[in-house]
Design a protein around this nucleic acid. Structure first.
Length: 489
RNA sequence: CGCGGGGUAGAGCACUGGUAGCUCGUCAGGCUCAUAACCUGAAGGUAGCGGGUUCGAUUCCCGCCUCCGCAACCA
């Protein structure tokens, strides 16, 4: 049977334009998706947009738009960013406002409900009279609204549906124990394990429709809508058409269950990329939700760090926001992909600044990769009778090892080590001199160099597919290509 | 005592109980196939601070300082 991989990003919340963090996450996931495809695996790659909830509702009201009209606009913007980022064209794009997703989320609710893990209870919200808004604990400072420290916070009762999270504490711990690489990197698994060990609390999964109508209707109660991320997390299986309503016999063909079996049960679930702010939701809450519905857990959760700029969180007020599309415009898609793959820390916070980007571009892409391809292919064009056929078609073992551990940066290092090796080989063997004295030997060396460049192209396919293709073309035509990356000052 | 991560050359990072490494940047030399690219060499760090264990610690333990993120009904 052909190996299969289901990999997905977190669905970004569309209360703002696409930002660099999402670009980084989806590029990494895309590299893994392309890599697995290159290994000959069948790959299902998913992304989309998370479109419900209070923030979006408010944003739409502010803009004087219907929520649906607002999210339609944003979803288009998120779709439009895929191509400039070089994302696989066969990626699935789900919107949480898609009718199929809504039906699936409702079925998921019903299933959890029928299994006894959802109940209704009174819930006290904290309300600031000054702001005329509900406040979360994290918004309060010393139990007071920071904007109205002289006013007492009022407690208001509200009925909410809750999810019986503590019922799954032991099962979650068993899952972490059984699968030490369930959460990547391991420190994050330690972190969530400690959190679960400290004890869980039920969490609210609905909102009163009268207060916040922009959500998926709770199927058992018309007065409530689902709390946004309860619905959003279900996307990972709604895209597989769970709950897989069997097709009528008269319609023939496989029923929808096959899709879920094919991509969830038989693959061992999705590999889910997410930011570290999503640790709880994805590695604990979502897994508990799956258990509540009687489904098997995800395969792996890969936790990214945050992208900072100048050591600080990007924010409009600081003016340090880096727009991924601007990077692509000023440099290009593969330059951005290189930077994401090779220069940023995989699992920790790391800094994205124009200065760093510019230096890395010149040093690694223009001087390193681009220049090597030019010098080798120039000699090949001049000295060789015809194109070299690349014989090595496998990825190196350490490259494979690193990518299987999602260590994209280390895999990139292997490529650049290879570039250095070839540059050094040219210096040491000097085929450009040798050609005048010992043509046969020079031809042999240049052929080896082209082989080496071919291996580099192979390793670059998942990371920078356009560049890899340009190199392969140059080899096939035995011609020096136009500079792959023009040096910028 | 809430949880987690970090503090190592100008910058970004790595390894390690026993002369501290890599990439980028800087400086000098070499080469000329190549995108003033490439190769070689050099300068540059008392490894946040203090204490402990040890024959010996950057590496293990304790304390402190400091930076970052999280702190569950915000997504």
């Amino acid at each position: 049977m052909k190996e299969r991989t289901y990999i997905t990003t977190t669905l970004p919340y569309v209360n703002a334009e696409p930002h660099i963090g999402f670009a980084v996450e989806i590029i990494r996931a895309d590299i893994i998706a392309r890599y697995r495809r290159a290994l000959g695996e069948e790959v299902f790659f998913n992304t989309g947009t998370d479109e419900h909830g209070q923030k979006i509702y408010q944003k739409a009201l502010e803009l004087g738009l219907e929520p649906q009209a607002y999210v339609d606009q944003l979803a288009e913007k998120f779709k439009a960013i895929l191509k400039p980022l070089g994302i696989s064209e066969d990626i699935n794009f789900v919107r949480t406002t898609d009718p199929a997703h809504i039906a699936s989320a409702q079925a998921f609710w019903r299933t959890c409900d029928q299994n006894g893990f959802i109940y209704k209870k009174n819930y006290q919200t904290k309300y600031c009279i000054g702001c005329e808004l509900e406040k979360t604990d994290s918004e309060l400072v010393n139990g007071k609204c920071p904007d109205h420290p002289n006013l007492a916070i009022e407690l208001r009762d509200e009925e909410n549906y809750f999810f019986k999270f503590p019922a799954f504490g032991d099962k979650l711990l068993a899952l972490y124990k059984e699968r030490p690489d369930f959460v990547i990197p391991a420190e994050r698994q330690k972190e969530i394990k400690a959190l679960v060990e400290r004890g869980l609390q039920d969490f609210s999964i609905s909102r009163l429709k009268t207060k916040m109508p922009w959500g998926i209707a709770v199927p058992t109660d018309p007065e409530h809508v689902m709390y946004v991320w309860f619905d959003a997390l279900v996307n990972y299986i709604s895209v597989l058409s769970w709950p897989c309503l069997a097709r009528a016999e008269s319609e023939g063909g496989p029923n929808d269950l096959d899709n879920f079996n094919h991509w969830w049960l038989e693959t061992g679930g999705a590999i889910q990329y997410c930011g570290k702010d999503n640790l709880r939701q994805q590695t604990a809450m979502w897994q508990a939700m799956l258990m509540a519905a009687g489904l098997s857990p995800s395969k792996q959760i890969v936790i990214d760090g945050f992208i900072t700029s100048g050591g600080q969180k990007m924010s409009k007020s600081l003016g340090n926001v880096i727009n991924p599309l601007e990077v692509v415009e000023k440099y290009d898609t593969d330059a951005l992909r290189y930077f994401v793959a090779g220069e940023l820390a995989m699992f920790e916070d790391s800094d994205f600044t124009w200065e760093r980007f510019h230096e890395a571009y010149n040093a690694k892409l223009a001087n390193g990769l681009g220049n090597l391809v030019s010098r080798v292919m120039k000699m090949a064009e001049n000295y060789l009778a015809g194109p070299v056929e690349i014989t090595k078609k496998e990825f190196p073992a350490d490259y494979v090892k690193f990518l299987s551990e999602f260590e994209i940066g280390k895999a990139v290092d292997i490529v650049w080590q290879k570039i250095s090796t070839l540059d050094l080989k040219i210096q040491q063997t000097q085929p450009f001199k040798l050609i005048k004295e010992n043509k046969e030997e020079a031809v042999k060396i240049v052929t080896e160099l082209v082989q080496g460049v071919g291996e580099i192209a192979k390793m670059l396919e998942p990371i920078m597919s356009t560049t890899a293709e340009k190199i392969n073309q140059a080899i096939a035509n035995n011609k020096m290509p136009a500079p792959l990356f023009v040096r910028k000052d």
